[in-house]
Design a protein around this nucleic acid. Structure first.
Lengths: 337, 337
DNA sequence: GATTGCGGTGAAATCGAATGCATCACGTGG
DNA sequence: CCACGTGATGCATTCGATTTCACCGCAATC
């Protein structure tokens, strides 16, 4: 392994000068710098990131903690994080918590020491832990907001608004909501938004796990109500709804409209293709990295007194993608009621 | 930050002894060890992984390189890797190559210095690069085999065999194969296996990208042939096939049977539910970690001469999951021919 | 009784890069 | 002509844990 010392020797300078020539912002004579750079290239020198990390206290690694890698929702965020980190020359340490708040806490404390900062997706842990674990510029929240911690999330309320206006424009007057986990911050935001739209009656089908089976159950609940449309917590639930409606012989969208959330790839592949609120997940991941890097930078320099810039709290726009699972509330549908 | 020296001082021993008591396999007096452990616990000492890594040369990190995090196939493998690594107290550095061999090479060289070993999923890079990059016990291959490098893959041939025997038992005599990328090692294995089954005529629909759109095209090709069943490279392609068959008014499975590969979650949600060859992807990920750790261990100790154990090359079993997209080759279907 | 043998220990070197401090050469202004 | 500033450089230290090497007792052995 070729070290800085080797390069220095080859260039005929001291290791200190070589270090400065290669990475330091300090002044180095142009001629010497050239020699060092040439020597480094010739010997195939690559800085040892571990040594650098020990001395400087920063590893250049980012931590990414999420509930489930196999969930396309989080996989998309991870992909965005990954891509942006690569652009910035940083590596990503990923940890899957298997939706378990205990594992989450465990993983975060363990990860915190190995990385410069950690991006927490949809954290389940209580606010006070969250604050102590990722408090001082060491963390970014995704899909959750908390005073004093930078975060990036999607505009859940606007997503609900778009979905409901779409349905209202199609003549629907009663809409059922198949919600997500009670502990979900996003679900709470969406639930709030349902109350804010005039001219529509909302039937709450209660909370539930964000899986297809929950959608199956929700479909029957919806059929038992006067709703002519169902909005689901996410696409998986919506697909469960579609499946059960088919089983029950209820035609979608003729007799019942269905809207999902997330726009996972499979949403376009089911039958009928699912109308859904598309969330900019990749972008969420990318922004989270940017906020993280910015937060790091803010810690380092002259330590501007009293925190001049409050932690950023970003909200990204969402977009309703209309496909085949929504249509006019037809007389036939009304007749079923 | 409390360091080893602090612990040593509190316990009244030298840092050397404290180190040995905490992590070294060397003998330490029981009484002294106890004192050190107690002091460490009391002070809330946590070893600095970076310092340890610098001295010992191993970071405890594993690298995971895969073509696309958002692809459920790789996400499942990643999940397995992640879970096993966590059990072993190791962290995972994930890198997404975006299906690009150049990025792949770049990422691997960059990652290699930060991790103890790297797990390469479905690597696209040429064999010689592969060997130099992950040669001496520094890498494990997934979904690709290469002399001298440990690997774990699935039994592609048996998957094809199971699928074809299923179809033959249902009375099918001509089967079309919608293959994957020409550069895919798995696809080559499967193609080989198609030739090995007697009593069936195979129609090769050619190679293609592993996306739904490719399935759409393949469906029309299949309809133009005398095939009564289509086996697709993966579930995504199979879903494309299903979609196009529906568009063309061909009923599945009555008029055409369809089989996928992978058994991604969405496979059970489409209509009809997809019969598919389930691959034990989580297990693949887990085994890859085990092989990696074993390979590391093999490097370290007495350096057994002439490499006593050849690199492990594991193959995990697959299982055909029969759902609703396959049925008897009916007279109606034959009539269509 | 002298000599190995060995468990246990600490001082100090080591890993590789970054950096505070001192130094030196060269100019420029007084 | 001297004092002082400035740019360039090297020495030595630092980061925190591991590990080599030497050493010290004490017990077993000849």
């Amino acid at each position: 392994m070729v070290t800085l010392k080797d390069v220095a020797a080859a260039a005929g300078v001291s290791p200190a000068t070589a270090s400065r020539a290669l990475s330091g912002p300090t002044s180095v004579a142009t001629v010497g710098r050239e020699r060092v750079l040439r020597a480094a290239a010739q010997l195939g020198y690559r800085v040892n990131p571990v040594a650098r990390a020990l001395r400087s206290g920063r590893s250049g690694h980012l931590g990414l903690v999420l509930p489930d890698l196999a969930n396309p929702f989080f996989a998309s965020i991870a992909k965005g994080v990954q891509a942006r980190a690569r652009e910035l020359g940083r590596n990503v340490l990923v940890a899957d918590t298997e939706e378990d708040p205990l594992i989450e806490l465990d993983v975060v404390t363990q990860l915190r020491e190995q990385v410069d900062g950690v991006i927490l997706c949809s954290p389940r842990m209580p606010a006070e832990h969250l604050r102590t674990e990722v408090g001082a510029g060491r963390g970014v929240l995704v899909n959750r907001e908390l005073d004093g911690v930078p975060s990036v999330s999607v505009d859940n309320a606007d997503g609900v608004r778009q979905a409901l206006e779409h349905l209202r424009a199609l003549g629907h007057r009663t809409v059922a909501y198949a919600g997500g986990p009670a502990s979900s911050w996003s679900d709470a935001r969406r639930r709030d938004a349902f109350g804010a739209v005039d001219g529509l009656t909302v039937v709450d089908l209660g909370p539930g796990r964000p899986v297809a089976a929950r959608g199956v159950a929700a479909a029957d609940l919806a059929l038992g109500s006067s709703a002519t449309a169902v909005v689901a917590y996410n696409d998986l639930v919506a697909m469960g709804v579609l499946e059960q409606l088919r089983t029950r012989g209820v035609r979608v969208p003729e007799q019942m409209s269905v809207i999902g959330f997330d726009d996972v790839p499979a949403a376009a592949l089911v039958n009928p293709p699912l109308t859904t609120v598309a969330l900019p997940l990749r972008a969420v991941g990318r922004r989270a990295v940017d906020l993280m890097v910015a937060a790091e930078a803010a810690i380092q320099p002259g330590a501007a007194p009293a925190g001049p810039t409050p932690p950023a709290r970003e909200q990204l726009g969402v977009e309703l993608v209309v496909r085949g699972s929504t249509a006019h509330a037809s007389p036939a549908a009304r007749g079923r009621e």
